[in-house]
């Protein structure tokens, strides 16, 4: 079953919001963009896997790039520390872990 990018992004957004409630108005736009990118990246990996054009190792590298980029962007929000960003990212990825790993057949998250 094809990964639903919109739902994936929305689930990540909701999870992150639960962690960063106080700062959410400042961070929402950034978070929306970054989690959408992560979701699109996961969907790209799924398509490429179906075509036999990507290995698990490459998929993992792609995802790491997206995750690190999300961390970098969220750190630009004034007052948001390293720990808070990490908690938000972990919460976002945690909520989609089973869906993604199950859909891809790889333990990427």
């Amino acid at each position: 079953m094809a990964i639903d990018v919109t739902k994936l992004a929305q689930d990540m957004l909701s999870a992150a919001k639960g962690v960063l409630t106080e700062k959410w108005p400042e961070i929402e736009d950034y978070a929306e963009t970054e989690f959408k990118s992560i979701a699109e990246n996961i969907a790209m990996i799924e398509r490429m896997k179906l075509m036999g054009k990507i290995t698990e190792e490459k998929a993992r590298l792609h995802l790491e790039i997206q995750k690190n980029s999300a961390r970098t962007v969220l750190l630009t929000v004034e007052g948001l520390g390293i720990l808070a960003v990490e908690q938000a990212i972990n919460a976002a990825l945690g909520v989609i872990r089973d869906t993604v790993n199950s859909a891809l057949g790889w333990t990427l998250l």
Partner: peptide, 14 residues
């Protein structure tokens, strides 16, 4: 098919 442009957008954001 690798979306390298994503890497471009996200690689350097400080």
């Amino acid at each position: 098919r690798t979306k390298l442009n994503l890497c471009v957008r996200l690689l350097v954001r400080v």
